[in-house]
Design a protein around this nucleic acid. Structure first.
Lengths: 195, 195
DNA sequence: CAAAAAAACGAACGGTCGTACTTTTATCGT
DNA sequence: ACGATAAAAGTACGACCGTTCGTTTTTTTG
């Protein structure tokens, strides 16, 4: 029982990486299996369909994001520091050298946006929750009076997300070195307007 | 000679639409051919490889964007009106009911961002040029003194692009109805800070 | 209107995909 | 240490992929 879960973790870890580069659809059982040095059928047995694999990959990714970005932010002092920490961690996540394929959520969002099924449902739920987490953190900064009392926190969350997407685009497609500075400048302007 | 180009246009028109939904990789010769009521081999003969088809699809898309978004903007009075017109047209482009599959550039950007080849090269060049067009239009608004003299127009272009990406994400994945209002609010704030 | 050229077709190819079976190998409780 | 059970491998399948090639149909041209 314990061996099975162990290899399943190995599979999901690798799949999670590949999916960032090739998408959930481009993730194939063959490449995944041979890359892990095991047989396609042996791998397949851990999931009962490809859709189930895709779903579990998204679940894995969400857990990783939680521990790599959300958790450190929540550990920071509530209010503005927490919001800054979130943005910092998120930027780092988007171009993590350990994940040279890019952010799986961006890839999955584009791929699943008009295809229904369990993977899409999960992704949408996770993204909604993330958005609300951002807004909630922003609200703590309103509580500490670091941000305007009448601030629209959902709007702020939207704009933060937009900056992250813009950063990803410039970094990954255009391969510029500026986008981090651009993203930080945009974030600073966002906070200035929210103060 | 004229008949061939005519059907080629029909092919590219349909391919351009499909690629927005399924991506350039998900665009398949079979579905494209049967959807057009012609044979796979007959279609294939117009391009000599799938990569060539993908490239020409991107070229078609760029021309469409040019006439649907850029041209109307350039026709508007220079300065702020032109910049607003660009943003308006772009928002409309991103959720054009005639293109229910979503923006092909967003799909292609994610798909090609770490795969090289002619399609990627073309896309990158087109995106760079688009970015510069935005910055140039912003510069006209600086010239008319509608925007700050010390404005960083490339930064402005980056942030406009980010807003568009955020709009696309919320509209297509989350399927919210608010994102247009959110995008416009973000754009208004952007202009306010640039004035 | 016939000859030449272009366009479309149909069938087949090697390859890869996800999935279903059966068989072999490894792990684990007793 | 052995029998039960879980994990992995092996094989095969039908479907679809991009591509090739020879043939047929359509269009253009002299």
């Amino acid at each position: 029982m314990t061996k099975g879960l162990e290899t399943k973790d190995r599979i999901l870890d690798r799949a999670f990486r590949i999916a960032g580069r090739d998408g959930l659809g481009g993730l194939t059982l063959s490449t995944l299996a041979t890359g892990l040095g095991m047989s396609k059928s042996g791998l397949f047995a851990h999931f009962r369909s490809k859709e189930e694999l895709q779903l579990q990959v998204l679940e894995t990714a969400t857990a990783r994001f939680q521990e790599a970005v959300i958790a450190p932010a929540v550990k920071a002092p509530r209010g503005l520091p927490r919001l800054r920490k979130l943005f910092d961690g998120w930027l780092r996540w988007m171009s993590d050298p350990a994940l040279p394929g890019g952010c799986i959520f961006v890839a999955a969002a584009v791929e699943l946006d008009d295809r229904d099924g369990k993977p899409r449902d999960f992704l949408v739920a996770a993204q909604r929750q993330l958005r609300e987490t951002i807004a909630r953190i922003a609200r703590t900064a309103v509580d500490t009076q670091e941000l305007r009392r009448d601030l629209d926190c959902e709007q702020l969350a939207f704009e933060i997300y937009a900056i992250i997407l813009g950063y990803n685009h410039d970094k990954r497609l255009l391969r510029e070195d500026r986008p981090e500075a651009r993203a930080r400048a945009a974030f600073a302007r966002l906070l200035a307007d929210a103060s």
